[in-house]
């Protein structure tokens, strides 16, 4: 029951879905639709796992008075305060949307943008043409970086054209091959799962 049961469920649900899609008969089509519906419900109702884990990790730090426990406590207070505010006031509640738009959004955007500064620092210290491969990467990168902004066409119309060519042909070829390889890899992995060979999802309980 502990191992065989889940593997049987995985195989049955997967095979049933494939058969119902392949046959596409009036009898089997509702089976796929039902499985879709169940999938959505399961996904939609397991979201609290993340919240419980977040509470556990931060709650433990507060109880143990670990270094910086104040921030963990703040996180828990804000988390549950915000959830209560939303649940009581609803999605359209002014305070709920204000906090999202005017507090979360600037913080998130700024965190996202700090990487620009790290890239700038790394650009000087790490992006070195140490061999032919790195040199090719850097030259392609510089052409695209300049060619995709207005400065590129101001310097020479050839630069944006070169950038576009790099993106439209060699990049498409490279990325397409990766995509095709990933597609085959994904299919092989799915086959292993559906035949019960892939059991790694049970290893970290």
């Amino acid at each position: 029951m502990k191992r065989e049961g889940p593997i049987a469920l995985l195989m049955i649900s997967g095979v049933l879905y494939i058969v119902s899609v392949m046959l596409a008969s009036p009898v089997m089509e509702p089976v796929a639709a039902t499985l879709d519906d169940w999938y959505k419900i399961v996904v939609g109702f397991i979201n609290l796992v993340g919240i419980i884990s977040l509470t556990q990790v931060n709650g433990r730090a507060v109880l143990r008075k670990s270094s910086g426990w104040f921030y963990n406590a703040l996180l828990i207070v804000v988390l549950y305060g915000y959830i209560i505010l939303g649940l009581v006031g609803g999605v359209g509640n002014v305070a709920f949307t204000r906090i999202y738009d005017n507090i979360l959004t600037p913080i998130l955007m700024t965190i996202f943008s700090t990487l620009t500064f790290w890239i700038g620092s790394a650009a000087y210290r790490a992006f070195r043409a140490k061999n032919l491969d790195a040199a090719i990467l850097l030259v392609a990168g510089i052409v695209v970086m300049i060619g995709r902004v207005t400065l590129g066409s101001a310097i020479s119309p050839a630069i944006p054209k070169a950038a576009e060519w790099i993106l439209n042909f060699p990049t498409v070829a490279g990325m397409r091959a990766i995509e095709m390889g990933a597609a085959i890899g994904g299919i092989v992995l799915a086959l292993r799962m559906i035949t019960g060979l892939e059991r790694s999802f049970m290893s970290n309980d």
Binding site: T116, I119, G120, A123, Y124, R125, A126, F127, R128, A129, K130, L138, G141, I142, M145, I146, V149, T150, L151, G152, A154
Partner: peptide, 23 residues
């Protein structure tokens, strides 16, 4: 912002070039 984006990008390109000259 397109002008600014150009020169901000250029700054990073200059960093890469300077880094490589130094290297």
């Amino acid at each position: 912002g397109m002008d600014s984006q150009s020169f901000m990008n250029l700054t990073i390109v200059i960093f890469v070039i300077l880094g490589n000259i130094g290297f």
